[in-house]
Write a protein that binds this DNA or RNA. Sequence first.
DNA 1: AAATATATATGATAATTGTCACCTTTTCAA
DNA 2: TTGAAAAGGTGACAATTATCATATATATTT
Lengths: 231, 231
Amino acid sequence: MSSENRCENCIIRQFNSLRAMSKEELKQVSDSKTSKTIKKGEAIFEEGEKLNGVFCVREGVSKLSKLSSNGKDQIVKLATKGEVMGQRSVIAEETSNLSAVAVNDMELCFIPKEVIVNTLHKNPDFTFEVLRLMAHDLKEADDVIVNISQKTVKQRIAEAFIYLKANYGEDAEGFLTLSLSREDIANVVGTATESCIRIISEFKKKGLLKSSGKKLGILDEKKLKDLAEGF
Amino acid sequence: MSSENRCENCIIRQFNSLRAMSKEELKQVSDSKTSKTIKKGEAIFEEGEKLNGVFCVREGVSKLSKLSSNGKDQIVKLATKGEVMGQRSVIAEETSNLSAVAVNDMELCFIPKEVIVNTLHKNPDFTFEVLRLMAHDLKEADDVIVNISQKTVKQRIAEAFIYLKANYGEDAEGFLTLSLSREDIANVVGTATESCIRIISEFKKKGLLKSSGKKLGILDEKKLKDLAEGF
DNA sequence: AAATATATATGATAATTGTCACCTTTTCAA
DNA sequence: TTGAAAAGGTGACAATTATCATATATATTT
């Protein structure tokens, strides 16, 4: 294995809990991990599946979603470069409550749970780091709950675009780096695909968004923000 | 201080992360903690407030809510006997993202954050236990997101009553032990108070719920469950 | 390049839910 | 105990959003 594939040398690690691991622990992770390439649209794991480890995102974006009883998928979180997926299930020793599907082509590392659990019980710094990140996820989940229940679909879609720009940026021509389908956006904000399409069309007509092929870009961020806040 | 007020002897502790503390750590907690009595309707802490410790619920129930930009309160969680409030903020070293208000008369212990943070960095078992409970909270939050965005108000209210019975039980006459105001129920499910009142009235007419004074009771749990599932 | 599938778009309509106004009952403090 | 405040309740209506049908554009496969 080339040295760039060793966790010790992986830059990604700086963004997640693995940065709190000792050299020996990292070596263990590195020796037991496997790399995976996942194509856009492919599943990484399914809701209800027992996870034998966690997935560290090296490249690409994954949508974490949960199927509701009415057959619709609700996207609960987008996981990006550096983020670790599946830790909640491993920690709680439960099957996954979410499915993970690649939004674009991805590179992942799979780390067997034994190494993780082992470190969790031995290295308080690592455990605390995992805890800190989960505390952050929980806060974000609280925010999502409030937004979904108190804001209109229009507000939430406006907010989604601001989020996409803030978290994934835009290219030289001002188009969003991460392009989600209308259906995915609908599943993020919790609405019907048609409603989502309608509102995006409206935003384009009003000069808030622009589009070129599959790409969408923000033209008037301030107005979008005002809209999201309810003005 | 009488021995019953020592954490070492507190039964409540068995239900939260403090059960993973060592004798010496518990002694520290016990020596530094203060007890508080909070009357129904009083605030324990406010959104945006810097918390200098965590609150352990000894008696009563607290609603944890977040104000949305439209002025409505969304109740994100109900905290009961044994649960610890405010840990998320202490761990993330952020101001609280939620407010806590007593739903009925409460008894709380306030534990200064130094003791908690100290133990978090020294005792991996404790840290892991906090992590495990937070993982559970996060799963519940995911479920709330899916429910709010995919189920109708009627389904969510039906579900809320099932939740109240399952988690707080009922008295000898079959009335729910925890009685929330219609406004609180509305704020749990994320709807307007009037809509909530209307649907509760409908449930009473249909023989799913009964009421006597302020008390509400479940008459037909099976039908409520079917309703919540969308039948 | 044609055929097929998938994504986007839009109209018409119905269902759900929120808002405002007003009323009654209950609770609570003076 | 009595008046004020809060909670519960209901009607009328408006706004929001979902659903269904159908059309068009774009991508993908053969």
